[in-house]
Amino acid sequence: MPRAKRSMPEKVSVQCRVNGHDATLLDFPMARLLDALREQLSLTGIKEGCGEGECGACSIEMDGRLVNSCLVPVAQAEGATIRTIEGVADGEQLHEVQQAIITHGGAQCGICTPGMILAAVNLLEHNGRPTEAEVRVALAGNLCRCTGYTKIFESVLAAVTVAEARD
């Protein structure tokens, strides 16, 4: 559809809080939050794998809930509190899940890793002691083609052990 023939929407300004900082996004209202965060805030740790909410590589937390940022129009981020992979570590101190993924081989090519970590961290915030079966369910929306998932399960369960020892 040629653009000139239709009245175009204006870009909208969206205020939200991202990884603990106030942020303003300026984009077409139907633009994907994925693109806005990557391009305007340089949060390129959020990955695009499929663009249809199937692979989970673009997973972020929005108001404490895991979402696929490729399926969120930017207009719906107004007032939202967002956490991306860049906001998971505490400065240089990695989250237990991040550390466990390094130690236990839970990342290979790394493209699913940010989304996978968000999904795992989100799980542990709702369920501090998941079983392997629960881990499998929680990560079913995050596809990994490299690892066969086995080492990801090991990583998440190891992170639980580390977190418990710390607490």
Binding site: G45, E86, V88, L94, Q98, I102, T103, A107
Partner: peptide, 21 residues
Amino acid sequence: RSIPRKEGREKVTGRARYVDD
């Protein structure tokens, strides 16, 4: 020995740079 992946830290923090980044 199972030396941890060299670029593991970049990958778990989202800092690893892929072409679209």
